[in-house]
Design a protein around this nucleic acid. Structure first.
Lengths: 243, 243
DNA sequence: TCAAAGTCAGAACGGCGTTCAAACTTGGTG
DNA sequence: CACCAAGTTTGAACGCCGTTCTGACTTTGA
C-alpha cells in the first residue's frame, strides 16, 4: 500500500471518527458533511472524494456500529458456559440493553429512522451484522428448544414462512431445527427489542424509575416460558443501574 | 366564535391536513413549512401565525396521531365481551399492529425519532394519549392478574419503582392492584411493541414472509404465560395479511 | 372612527447536500 | 528527467430548509 493509499485510509478513518463524535453529541442531524469538513480543516465538498454521498457515510457508520453491538453481545454470551443455556440467553439480553443505553444514537441508527431522508441500500443497512444477530439468536433458541418445544409449538410454522436466504442459512448451521424454533428466535428478539426500544426512546422513563428491573423481570419470564431454570439465573441478577 | 376565529380554525386544520399528507407520502422530512405553504398558496412564513415553530406543528401532529391510535385500540378492545379477558388482550394487541402498519409514519412519529432535530416538550409528546395507553394496558393486566399472579410475581416490585404520577393514577383506578401487576402491564406493552417496531422499521421483512403469524404466535404465548385460555383465542385467529 | 390586534408577503440570514469547474498534488510511464 | 493521468481539494453556485424581521393589509371592538 503506497503512501497515497495510506493517507486515504487515514482521512477516511478521521471522517468516520468525527462523524461518530457528532452523532453521539448532537444526534443524527449533527452528522453533516460541512460540519465534519469544518472540523477537519477541509471544505465540505472534499468529503465527496471519500464518500459518494452523505447516505454512504451513514451506511458505513451503521455497519461499524452494528458490528460493535454484535461483538459485545457475542462476547457476553460466550463468557457463560455453553451448557448454561439460561445464563447465555440472559447474558445476550443484558448485553443488548447495556449496549443500547450506552449508544442510544447507535441504536436509533440501526433500529430506528437513521437520519432524515435516509434510505438503506438494498439488502438492508448491514446485512453481515444482521445475519450474525439472527444466527446468534437462533443458536440460543436452538439450545433452548429441547426444553421449550413442549410449550412453544402451539402455532404451526413452515419453512416457507421465512425468507429463502434465512431458511437455507439456518438449516446449514442447525440441520435438525424445526421452523417453529426459528419463529421462537425471532420472537425472543422481539421481546428483548420491545422494552429496550421503549427505554431508548424515552417512553419508559415517564413510567418507571427502574427500567433495569423491569427488563430483568421480562428476561426471567422469557426463560420461564422456555422451560428453563429461573432460580439459577435469578442469582446472577444485575444491579439496578439507571441509564 | 366570530368569523375571524372560524377562519383561523379552518386554516389550522388545513395546515395539519396537508402536513399529514406530506408525512405519509414523503416521510417526516417532507413536512416542511415552506412546502405546506406552497401547496396552500401561502408563503412559508405565514404559517408562523398558526404554529410558533415547526416543532409545535409536529407536536400537535403527534397528539392527533397518538389519539387516533388509542381510539382504535380501545374500540377494538371494547368490541370484545368484558369477561373474555384473553380476547380483549388479543384485540388490543392486534389493533396496535394493524394501526401501526397502516400508519407507519405515524408510528415512527410517536415511538421513533419524530423528525430531525425535534425535541419533545417537557412531559412527553402526548401526555394525554400516553396516559390512555398506560391505563388501557393496566386495565388488561388487572383483569388478567387473578390468573397471572401465580406465575408473574417472581420479581419483587414496589410502588416506588414507578413514577409518582403513574402510581397515583393507577391506584386511583385500580385500588387493589399490586405493583407487580403494573410491571406486568409495562412488560405486555414491551412485548407488543417489540415485534411491531421491528416490522415497521423493516427488520422482519428480510427474515419472515408472514410477520402476522409471528405476531399472533407471540400474543398466544403472552396469553399462555398469563394463565389464560389459549384455545379459545386461537379460534379468533386473524387471516395472514401481509403489510 | 380609529387604534389595536391579527394576518400575510417578501427579503434576508445561516444552515444543509450536492454539483461543477478550476487549481493543485501525486503517481507512474516513456 | 519530463509529462500526463489520476486523485484531491477548493470555492462558488443551486435549491432546499427553519426562522426572523419589516412593512403592508385586514379585521375587530371600543
Amino acid at each position: 500500500m503506497g503512501r497515497r493509499a495510506r493517507l486515504r485510509a487515514q482521512t477516511t478513518a478521521e471522517i468516520k471518527a468525527i462523524a461518530l463524535k457528532h452523532l453521539s453529541e448532537g444526534g443524527p442531524d449533527a452528522v453533516s458533511l460541512r460540519a465534519i469538513g469544518r472540523e477537519m480543516g477541509m471544505s465540505g465538498s472534499a468529503i465527496y472524494s471519500y464518500f459518494d454521498t452523505r447516505d454512504a457515510l451513514i451506511t458505513t457508520l451503521i455497519n461499524d456500529i452494528y458490528t460493535s453491538l454484535l461483538d459485545q453481545a457475542e462476547t457476553a454470551r460466550d463468557a457463560v458456559a455453553p451448557d448454561d443455556i439460561a445464563g447465555r440467553i440472559l447474558a445476550w439480553g443484558q448485553a443488548l440493553r447495556v449496549w443500547s443505553l450506552a449508544n442510544p444514537e447507535g441504536f436509533r441508527l440501526i433500529y430506528g429512522d437513521p437520519v432524515a431522508g435516509y434510505h438503506a441500500p438494498t439488502g438492508g443497512p448491514a446485512p453481515e451484522a444482521a445475519k450474525r444477530a439472527c444466527l446468534g439468536l437462533t443458536e440460543l433458541a436452538a439450545a433452548a428448544w429441547p426444553h421449550a418445544k413442549a410449550t412453544q409449538a402451539s402455532t404451526d410454522h413452515q419453512w416457507s414462512d421465512f425468507s429463502p436466504g434465512l431458511a437455507d442459512t439456518i438449516r446449514e448451521h442447525f440441520p435438525d431445527l424445526p421452523p417453529a424454533a426459528v419463529a421462537l428466535a425471532l420472537r425472543m428478539w422481539g421481546r428483548m427489542h420491545g422494552l429496550i426500544s421503549l427505554e431508548v426512546y424515552g417512553h419508559l422513563a415517564t413510567q418507571t424509575g427502574d427500567p433495569a428491573k423491569l427488563y430483568h423481570a421480562e428476561l426471567l419470564d422469557l426463560l420461564r416460558s422456555l422451560g428453563l431454570d429461573v432460580e439459577h439465573a435469578r442469582r446472577a441478577r444485575t444491579p439496578h443501574s439507571s441509564a
